[in-house]
């Protein structure tokens, strides 16, 4: 089932490639992490692939899993579950990598499973809840989309990858010590 859904989504994503920005504006690719459904704006999506062999890159925080070879391009993959500080979970045959292009950089996101492409009109999107941050961490949600009775979480994907402060701090902590200039 997962395969056919993936193929269909893939086709749709490809078709959308030809469309202009306007028709893509309110469309999202939804995927599941744990019990919730998350969406990324379709304009970022390049393709959806099955899990591949990942080579670990040193000096990275745990959520940066490493790199994969995507038809000759070596691209980083980020585990969204870990990025959102959720508990790690073993990958299975429904685990997918959502390949995105953000600011001309290709990045793959590992998600539990891919669901569907859906349009959510602007007036059905509410701003994110205003909880006080417990951990002091950044929030990556751009809004909450209402579809019938269900609520889907819309991700601000640029913030997910551009929040490099944490990434660099982690790199420094794990690898920088030995290389400090004498």
């Amino acid at each position: 089932m997962a395969d056919t859904a993936r193929a269909a989504l893939h086709d749709e994503a490809m078709l959308l490639d030809d469309d202009n920005e306007d028709t893509q504006a309110n469309k999202y690719l939804f995927f599941r992490i744990g019990k919730e459904s998350y969406g990324i704006g379709i304009r970022y999506i390049i393709e959806i692939i099955e899990l591949q062999r990942i080579s670990e890159v040193p000096d990275m925080p745990p959520y940066v899993k490493g790199v994969i070879n995507l038809r000759g391009k070596v691209i980083p993959v980020v585990d969204l579950r870990l990025r959102f500080d959720m508990e790690e979970r073993a990958y299975d045959d429904r685990t997918c990598i959502v390949v995105t292009e953000i600011d001309r950089v290709l990045i793959g996101f590992i998600v539990d499973t891919v669901e569907e492409v859906m349009e959510i009109p602007e007036d059905r999107i509410e701003p994110p809840p205003r909880f006080k941050s417990v951990s002091g961490g950044e929030r990556y949600i751009s809004g909450m989309g209402k579809v019938g009775d269900t609520v889907k979480i819309l991700i601000d994907v640029e913030r997910v990858v551009q929040d490099r402060g944490a990434l660099e701090a982690a790199a420094l902590a794990s690898g920088g010590a030995g290389s400090a200039p004498a």
Partner: peptide, 21 residues
Amino acid sequence: SEFFGKIEGISGCSILGDGSV
């Protein structure tokens, strides 16, 4: 990928015959 920034001790990558990095 520029996503990684500079990694001390690694200057780049390459793809091997079997497709691994």
